[in-house]
């Protein structure tokens, strides 16, 4: 598999703290480069705008809407929500949907979409995604691993290389209505890379997932700050795991207590759209483990209604954007 990944320049030593990045314009010329053992290597690399950018933009040009699913915090349900959103969009047979898993160290989408154990095929036109449904394609590093338990111990630069290939070389077919991109927690290499590489192709916006407690909101604030810095529009915030209804007594409890008002208060404070909250339902976890579509199975549960409401609100946001563009 490693031979597929484009080779990064061989550096002699780890990058110094303020390394401008071997692929940047200042490579070899920055202040931090003086005295760095890599200076000559970096300096001799080709400069100028990344030639791959045009290829990426071209490859993504027939994708109508591109959505990032983000959260500063781990385990709030980014992948769960990405899978739900993909299922919900793909339920409309007219739509072609793609899901891309950028969580390289902990890919979970394949299991949630019931596509574990599949492999990616390479052809002349690029890597073909794995199809979970006829109109739902999926791309994840998990499909490329020899053993699903293998640890992917990669530094940032290597992850960036793979993300670039995902954007450049995956053949999504003639037309894709939605590409949903699942991301890892944090604000680091993966996030910088995906937003930079997709800049020209255009990102419709980001869906931010949070849970109600302040410990999570704290990290989510950072992610929102990141979106602002990177110039990504925030389509809205969804609050996951809010409230739990006991199956034996129907009593409701707040497991992750919103002591500071939860996602809704955060949206008010930062002027963002609150798309809705989804209650905890143990059956969601089970459906994800088995790779089944949750709202096919439990169509009338409060959780699936809540999820579908959020998806509708999100589609409104995105399609409203497009209308605005048409008027102009």
């Amino acid at each position: 598999m490693t031979t597929l990944i484009s080779q990064k320049p061989e550096l002699k030593a780890p990058e110094p703290e303020h390394c401008p990045g071997p692929e940047s314009e200042d490579a070899g010329k920055g202040d931090a480069c003086a005295g760095c053992p890599n200076q000559q290597i970096c300096e001799s690399l080709p400069k100028g705008p990344d030639p791959d950018m045009a290829v990426i933009t071209e490859n993504l040009s027939n994708i109508k809407h591109k959505i990032l699913v983000l959260s500063g915090k781990g385990g709030v349900g980014k992948s769960t929500f990405t899978s739900m959103l993909s299922w919900a969009l793909a339920a409309d047979e007219e739509l072609e949907v793609g899901a891309m898993d950028l969580d390289i160290c902990g890919p979970s989408l394949p299991r949630m979409l019931g596509a574990e154990g599949e492999t990616v095929h390479q052809s002349n036109s690029g890597w073909s995604p794995v199809y979970a449904l006829d109109n739902l394609g999926l791309m994840s590093i998990l499909f490329m691993l020899p053993d699903p338990d293998a640890a992917i111990i990669w530094r940032g630069a290597k992850k960036n290389g793979l993300i670039k290939q995902f954007l450049k070389d995956v053949n999504w077919g003639e037309r894709l209505d939605y590409l949903v991109v699942d991301t890892p927690p944090g604000t680091s290499d993966e996030h910088l890379s995906v937003t930079t590489y997709m800049k020209d192709a255009g990102i419709d916006g980001a869906l931010v997932v949070t849970t109600p407690q302040e410990v999570a909101l704290l990290d989510v604030r950072k992610e929102i700050d990141f979106c602002r810095k990177a110039g990504i529009k925030i389509l809205g915030v969804v609050e996951n795991m809010s409230g739990f209804v006991c199956p034996s007594c129907q009593g409701e409890s707040q497991i992750f207590k919103p002591t500071t008002g939860g996602g809704e208060a955060l949206c008010e404070e930062l002027g963002l759209k609150f798309l809705g909250s989804v209650p905890l339902d143990p059956r969601i976890g089970r459906a994800c483990d088995n790779g089944e579509c949750f709202f096919d199975q439990y169509a009338d549960s409060p959780a699936s209604n809540a999820i579908l409401d959020v998806v509708d609100a999100l589609r409104d946001e995105i399609e409203m954007l497009l209308e605005n563009l048409n008027i102009n």
Binding site: P14, E17, T187, S188, D189, K222, I224, D225
Partner: peptide, 11 residues
């Protein structure tokens, strides 16, 4: 507390 730390690996 709201500002993000956007750092790549080496940093």
């Amino acid at each position: 507390r709201g500002s993000s730390i956007v750092w790549r690996g080496p940093k």
